[in-house]
Design a protein around this nucleic acid. Structure first.
Lengths: 339, 339
DNA sequence: ATGAAAGCGCTAACAG
DNA sequence: CTGTTAGCGCTTTCAT
């Protein structure tokens, strides 16, 4: 049943070494023999045993990526890019969903951490960052983390400048003539949420303005909906709102429309992330795009450099997000009246 | 740097065999010695080499799962369940995103297929089903496919009864007094879309009714939006619509509200899948829930049975979906007037 | 209860 | 250009 390299050698009338050579594309094999081997491989339906190869080579050829949940189109894009880039470098990608609901410390380790199944790991937006890092350090597994929480950590990271994102989003609103601008943030527990908010406040301050309203809420549609509904009920309606993410933005839009306000005619709404949803919903969301592809690229580059022991200049990257203007933001009504 | 079992043996003053025994929880090790070994392992920070173990044992202990894209909360749930169930059985899960945009045949194989890195594979809702299956069969890798496209294929599958889903969704609308019911389907290229539509038509027929309108469209928000908008513009507004999935439903609701219709007061809308979105959007969507958890469970069970050569009674499962009533459907207005 | 020895399938020297 | 010979790190007989 199980056919191995010896079977192929016998069948092709050559030695295992030669077979191994054609397996590894060694140029030093007579074309005629190469064909014989290939032929035998095909006939026998032979597949090299990866465990044996890994054992002797000392490396697995696979890079792991841990992620906490699917259902995020930005992550999806990152993962796809990582997958492609890795393939180009001759590596395979293995993804592991780390159940964040797992009983605390119990088993922080995904299968990737166990033993030495991967040559390196990309940690994507971890919840328990410290734990992961500690474990990886101990085990001596090369890694890089994308979107980390602890800004002080001196580890290889790929991040996006959330401060700038918040700042730019607000500036966009400002440029449209808005002055009564509110912000619905995601959990301030997240560094990203805090940074976006900071950018928001500073952008306003730079114009001598202060926030019309700020709600420290949660990421998600319902959250945005509730906040906006409450504001409407209390008669406090801004002319523009900067939402902590696209889901919040969607909720805000829903609440606004339910309350009889039109977006963007009556109030403008800008999201964050540029999830797939953002360009499908009506009105299509103006938002701050995460440079997902770039994040994936850089992560792979940094990780591979570390693995190969390449001279590493820099292992901390801070990428910049991009403003995507669509339909949910427009000139401030008050402004329009003046014209 | 690299510490192996011999180092542990030396440090603990015992043989590699004994070390191996404690590694594998063999009961035949004197408690005192077990402690010594454990101690040495800890001090040396020893991690067993999985390649070596795999090589000698003949099995990897990891199950692969291929998926085409993240961003789907139903898949997310399936994957999480699979992950947990597998862990319970002592297996690890490795996920592989199969780039469907890949140059055709070129490299249909994910890293999971290459060589023999996994003991079995769960194929989740494949696009190029036939190709996958063929490859898996040739390589002799145990597998099971969830949500397959080819209804005739005689392979281990876990499916959901989409016909019943479509039928029940329609019956729900019918029970609310609706008679002018329309359907916006996903790509009829998908077996699931065709089956749902069939259930829709049959449910209507059983009441002596025929579809008010049917649009063979695509899955997605914009698609639902466009179809509904066109219907409204042409003055053909149903009192209820059965959407091929939750995204379509969301688009339909948006178009309806943009057109001045209220959901569910003026027209009822039912979705399909019960994506996370469904319960977050306003109004919260009535929908047909996919039994995601169950799918994961059955898939693992079937696959493990195949791997273990257990006497297998059945390898084809057809699970039943569930109607989740929320806010987007209500009594037909005409009906209400009569009461 | 413990250990010595024989591989698991493959590749990396080192000859020829 | 091709083959012989050692292992890679671990588990598994088979003794003791």
């Amino acid at each position: 049943m199980k056919v191995n390299i010896f079977d192929v050698a016998k069948k092709s009338g050559l030695s295992v070494v030669t077979v191994s050579r054609v397996l590894n594309n060694s140029p030093s094999v007579r074309e005629k023999n190469r064909q014989k081997v290939l032929q035998a491989i095909k006939e026998l339906n032979y597949i090299p045993n990866s465990a044996a190869r890994t054992l002797v080579r000392g490396k697995t050829g696979v890079i792991g990526l841990t992620i906490t949940a699917l259902g995020d189109t930005v992550f999806d894009c990152i993962v796809k890019t990582v997958n492609d880039r890795l393939k180009q470098s001759g590596y395979f990608l293995a993804i592991s969903i780390s159940n964040e609901a797992d009983h605390e410390m119990e088993e922080a380790s995904s299968f990737l951490f166990q033993e030495d199944r991967v040559d390196g790991i990309i940690v994507l937006s971890p919840v328990r960052e410290e734990q992961y890092i500690a474990e990886l350090e101990i085990k001596g597994i090369p890694y890089v983390v994308i979107d980390n929480q602890n800004e002080h950590a001196n580890i290889p990271t790929i991040n996006v400048d959330n401060y700038k994102g918040g700042y730019e989003a607000t500036k966009h609103l400002l440029s449209l003539g808005h002055t009564r601008i509110a912000h619905v943030s995601g959990e301030v527990l997240f560094l990203s949420a805090r940074e976006r908010q900071k950018g928001f406040i500073d952008a306003l301050a730079d114009e001598g303005l202060s926030p019309f309203l700020i709600a420290n809420s949660r990421f998600g549609i319902r959250s945005g909906y509730q906040v906006m509904r409450d504001w409407i009920q209390s008669g406090q309606v801004p002319t523009a709102v900067f939402a902590g993410d696209d889901a919040i933005a969607l909720g805000v839009v829903e609440a606004l429309e339910a309350g009889g306000y039109r977006v963007p005619e009556d109030v403008s709404v800008i999201g964050y992330d540029d999830q797939e949803l953002a360009s499908e919903v009506h009105p299509r969301l103006t938002t701050i795009r995460q440079p997902a592809g770039q994040m994936g690229e850089y992560a792979v580059k940094v990780l591979l450099d570390i693995i190969n022991g390449s001279p590493i200049e820099l292992t901390k990257f801070r990428l910049v997000p991009e403003l995507i203007v669509r339909e949910s933001t427009g000139i401030c009504r008050d402004q329009r009246q003046n014209t």
